[in-house]
């Protein structure tokens, strides 16, 4: 059983890290977004492995169902210059690489060197404690202990909703309106009628 879990963990890790690498290196931005979705999916599976069912489902619902869809939409709305022939990274990408690798090394080395932070691992005599991954405990926490956080998160979401609409809104008058066939027909008729009227007026003037 332990071996099975370790194999699954290894595969998930490969999926998460590999997909994330593809996100930052692949040239086509749509492919990057699709790899990002794969990475999100791996993270959701990792939550399942960590017995946090609710978080896993929320991850799928919010990240895959909403955020990645938003990203795909944004890419398609700004696809005019898809950057196929252009440079992929900024001019100083090597500095970013040094920073990221250095940070990873700074975390990895103490971990490999041993239990550097002295965090006790939960292998106590009591066995595995019963984890609380139920929705009911979370819900109760939201309306008692974390009530203020919960309200602030609600306000944040409302602000973000309104803010996003205000920022991305294009006024109706500035939008190029596409006429429906019926409207086009009416427009043609009216134009014809006004032209005839003008011609008739010109005749009258003569």
């Amino acid at each position: 059983m332990d071996l099975l879990i370790q194999i699954i963990f290894g595969l998930l890790t490969a999926l998460i890290i590999g997909a994330a690498m593809m996100v930052v290196t692949v040239r086509n931005i749509i492919h990057a977004a699709l790899w990002l979705i794969a990475s999100f999916f791996g993270v959701a599976a990792l939550y399942l492995l960590l017995e946090a069912e609710f978080i896993a489902v929320v991850q799928v619902l919010v990240y895959i169902g909403a955020i990645s869809i938003l990203i795909l939409f944004a890419i398609m709305l700004t696809r005019h210059i898809s950057g196929e022939g252009e440079r992929l990274l900024t001019r100083h990408w090597w500095a970013a690489a040094v920073v990221a690798l250095g940070l990873f090394g700074a975390v990895l080395l103490p971990t490999l060197a041993g239990n550097a932070w002295g965090i006790p691992l939960p292998t106590g005599p009591a066995g595995t404690p019963e984890p609380l991954s139920g929705v009911e405990e979370l819900g109760r926490g939201f309306v008692s202990e974390f009530l203020l956080h919960f309200e602030v998160a609600g306000v944040l979401l409302t602000v973000a909703l309104i803010g996003a609409i205000v920022i991305a809104f294009e006024e109706r008058s500035r939008r190029r309106r596409v006429l429906t066939l019926a409207e086009e027909h009416t427009l043609n008729q009216r134009q014809k009628a006004s032209a005839e009227r003008a011609a008739a007026a010109a005749d009258m003037a003569d």
Binding site: G83, A96, V99, A100
Partner: peptide
């Protein structure tokens, strides 16, 4: 940590703004 560093690299070095946002999400 590895995921964080990859995301950091993406956010710092991608030229496309959507790519930067993807790094932040990671």
């Amino acid at each position: 940590a590895a995921l964080f560093c990859i995301g950091l690299f993406g956010a710092l070095s991608r030229r496309n703004l959507v790519g930067v946002l993807m790094g932040v999400e990671l």
